[in-house]
Simulated scan of single mutants.
Amino acid sequence: MRDILDDIEPWHREGRRFAVATVVRTWNSSPRPIGASMAVADTGEVIGSVSGGCVEGAVYEVAREVLESGVPQLVRYGVSDDNAYSVGLTCGGILELFVQLVDAEIFPDLAMVVEAVRERRPIAVATVIDGSESVGRRLVITPSATRDSLGSERLDQAVASDARGMLEHGTTGILHVGRQGERRSDQVSVFVVSLSPPPRMIVFGAIDFAAAVARIGKFLGYHVTVCDARPLFATKARFPEADDVVVAWPHHYLAETDVDERTVLCVLTHDPKFDVPLLELALRTPAGYVGAMGSRRTHGIRLAKLRENGLSEEELARLCSPIGLDLGARTPEETAVSIAAEIISAMWGGSGRPLSNTTEPIHREPLASHPPVIPAALTPK
């Protein structure tokens, strides 16, 4: 949903009616993950994607029906359906989508949601999608308050409590509760889209490789910061794609920066006086990925210094160095691709091997220790 917000906000502000189709459940090799959204305006204009082209035509027709009737629909497409091949979903996956009408009267708090996302404030939207007379009702949830209602105070309280936990970890999915929020019942399905701030990528070392890593980090949907102690190199002109360019000693900056399980730390400094104290801190944070550039010889020297400084073998095992997957990369851009590939593999538990040489599912659940980092620029949220 996140990536269509800027497009639907003008529609909402102008008082236009539109239908939003959102992927709420997937099975097997579905082409888009949970949270992917597509909007159809009353003029017929379409934005977003729910399947990369497989079922958009069929979803468009459902959206037009919802625009006409105002009644939400929960629809499913997959190879097990009679019309699977007619709509084009031949990859073996199954998608379930909730299609709902949106306008200024039905969803008055959409402007507040858009503002929160733009200001990087965490916010979630919970919608009843099945099992209740209140299908389509919404609850907007922040860490400290709620707006609107799902139909009852007890249901609101139960959903808000669980949704705040999802919001903290940036996860999106379905909650199953009783009609009054009972934990041991599952009559009601509530879809929660978590619009927490995008995950952070912090690139240490203002070198040419850092510029390429910053570009691919933005492409993957990260909020990118480049940090270097040298003001001559750490400039916005050299790193136009970065959200922030910070002039500071790397370990001082990291010590004052919030880091969570979705944070990616890329150490490209190539200088022991920078990277050893930096890695000593980085490997003791909850960051989902810590990588450091350098030769195998440099890596060995770094490990020895870090051991001298008291880091345990368990902490050292978290370090990805030399950084990146073995793609034979040489240029800064190729190296950035190899680093991005390793980050994605680390977050989702991939093997890094060619898919043609594997038998595991192509799409998999994230590692329990690494909440998923959904690429905002590639995957609608």
Rank of each mutant, 00 (worst) to 15 (best):
R330T: 11
G328A: 01
G352A: 03
S345R: 05
E314V: 09
S345C: 10
G328Q: 03
G352E: 01
E342K: 06
A287L: 09
R353W: 01
E280K: 15
S338Y: 03
A340V: 07
Y289T: 13
E280G: 12
I323K: 03
P322K: 06
V290N: 11
P277M: 09
R302W: 09
C320F: 09
E342S: 12
S356E: 03
I344T: 08
Y289A: 11
W348N: 08
E315W: 07
R307F: 08
I301L: 14
A317D: 08
A282L: 13
V276G: 08
E314L: 08
M293L: 15
I344L: 08
L279S: 14
W348K: 10
A346N: 07
T285A: 01
S312Y: 06
E313D: 14
L278E: 10
I344F: 04
E313Q: 10
L278W: 11
A329V: 05
L316F: 06
A346Q: 08
S356I: 02
S312D: 06
E342A: 13
R330N: 09
L319F: 09
T285M: 02
L283P: 15
S345G: 03
L303I: 15
G350I: 00
G294I: 10
S351E: 03
L325E: 00
T331Y: 01
A287D: 10
S345Q: 02
L355E: 01
E315N: 01
A329K: 04
R284I: 09
M293P: 13
W348C: 04
T285C: 02
L325C: 07
T298L: 03
P354T: 03
R297E: 10
A336N: 07
R302A: 09
L311Q: 00
R353I: 00
A282V: 14
A340S: 05
G328K: 02
L319G: 09
R297I: 14
E315A: 15
M347E: 00
A336S: 09
G291Y: 11
